[in-house]
Computed example of a mutant assay.
Amino acid sequence: MPRRTAAKLATVTAVLAATVLSVAPSAHADLVTYCIGTGGAVTVPNDLYVPAGESCALTGTTITGNVSVAAGGNLVVAGGHVSGEVRIAADGYLDATDTTIGGAVVLAAGGYGTFLKDAQTGAVVVRPKGSATIDSFLFVEASTIAGTVNTSAGEVRLDRGTQVEGNLVSAGTYYTDVHDSFVDGSLSVLNSATGSVVCGSAIRGQATFAGNLGGVQLGPNGVLDGCASGSYWGRDVSVTNTTGGVTVDDNIINGRLTVTSNNPAAQVAANNRIRGGVTADPAGATAKRTATAGPVREDTGDQRAEVRRTSAVQEATAAGDAGL
């Protein structure tokens, strides 16, 4: 798609803002600042808008309002601060590193993806794919989410010390994996196309896995991914109606483990410490720990993020100074 070769910055009145906000909602401010190109350590005193198909790359920028990324747009921000929320439209992309976002991050149906690293945000929402052709991704590394993560599409992975201060709710994703992270509330993974892996993490609330087609792996020595250790589970854990294999290995469960109606039957290793006992199907529910390592998932989401990030920064740099 065509790209502009010069920076464009427009501050519009409330009349034009109302038109823009019908596509890119904003909670406050009479003015909206357009961003095409690059920006530095300045303060944007209102909402920020990345137009459709354009790229904005910011370093050390403070935005006092909300942010909207229109269809096909890209926002890459490092060391920034957003007081409000960030909304990303279809085929839009958000890449935030070492950045604080005071409000929610919302990825629309068919949004390209969201990558957060060393970031702090409010609640995170990934809308269902619906009829969109793009399957989203949400990758979070070493970040704190002050609210619930509610995701209904694409590839989802929390990794490297990420903290979720609310619940993690996943339904209809391609996969939902949690590595070396902490969820202060409950964890629910339902109807995932290729299942779920949870390793080296702590889940404070109840955990429910149901209807997952590709299997569920809690701990190492499973068929989906390689990892070093199991997890701590603060309450009951339930894995039901799952195909593709269920393995529970090297976990501490401070509640009851339920593994029923899975095909094949779940394998629960002897090295788990389960305070409330196990409810399982009559045959084949308990197995000895095996020394086989499963295949590592392909990091397709990471690759997609890297490709989009690189392209966005190149396009923003070519557009020049956004004049913020």
Rank of each mutant, 00 (worst) to 15 (best):
A322K: 14
L218C: 12
L213D: 09
N46A: 13
D30T: 15
S201V: 06
G166Q: 13
V67P: 01
G214L: 06
A265G: 13
Q163S: 13
G244R: 12
G284Y: 05
T176H: 11
N263Y: 02
T43G: 05
Y93K: 10
Y232S: 13
T64A: 12
G301D: 07
Y49H: 09
K129N: 10
V15M: 12
A7G: 15
V259Q: 00
T162H: 09
L116W: 09
A41S: 11
I203L: 08
G205K: 06
V126G: 01
G195V: 00
T121H: 07
E315G: 08
S229H: 11
V259C: 09
T133H: 08
A109T: 14
S26E: 10
N167W: 03
T310C: 08
V307C: 04
S143D: 07
S136T: 10
V77E: 03
V296N: 15
G226R: 14
N263E: 02
V124N: 04
V77H: 01
V313N: 08
A312W: 08
D135Y: 07
R87F: 11
G185E: 07
I203E: 00
I274Y: 13
P282H: 04
T11Y: 10
D180R: 15
N191R: 15
R304E: 11
Q303E: 14
V140M: 08
T242N: 00
T59M: 13
R273W: 10
G79Y: 10
A316G: 14
R127K: 15
S152F: 14
A78P: 00
A305Y: 02
D250E: 04
Q267G: 03
H81S: 15
N241M: 06
H179D: 02
Y175K: 10
L58N: 05
G244H: 13
M1T: 12
A316N: 05
G80R: 12
T247Q: 13
V246G: 03
P220H: 02
R127G: 01
V77S: 05
A291Q: 11
E315M: 14
A104S: 15
A210W: 03
P45A: 14
A291V: 05
D281M: 05
V67R: 09
G172D: 09
V313Q: 08
V169P: 00
C199E: 03
N221C: 11
S238I: 01
I253L: 12
R289C: 02
S231W: 09
A14Y: 07
V189R: 07
D95M: 04
A269Y: 08
I134M: 10
E54K: 11
A146Y: 03
T162C: 10
T97S: 07
L94S: 03
V178F: 13
G215A: 04
Q206F: 01
G245P: 03
R3L: 15
G37R: 01
S131P: 03
G211K: 02
V23R: 09
D321K: 00
I252T: 14
D91L: 03
D47P: 03
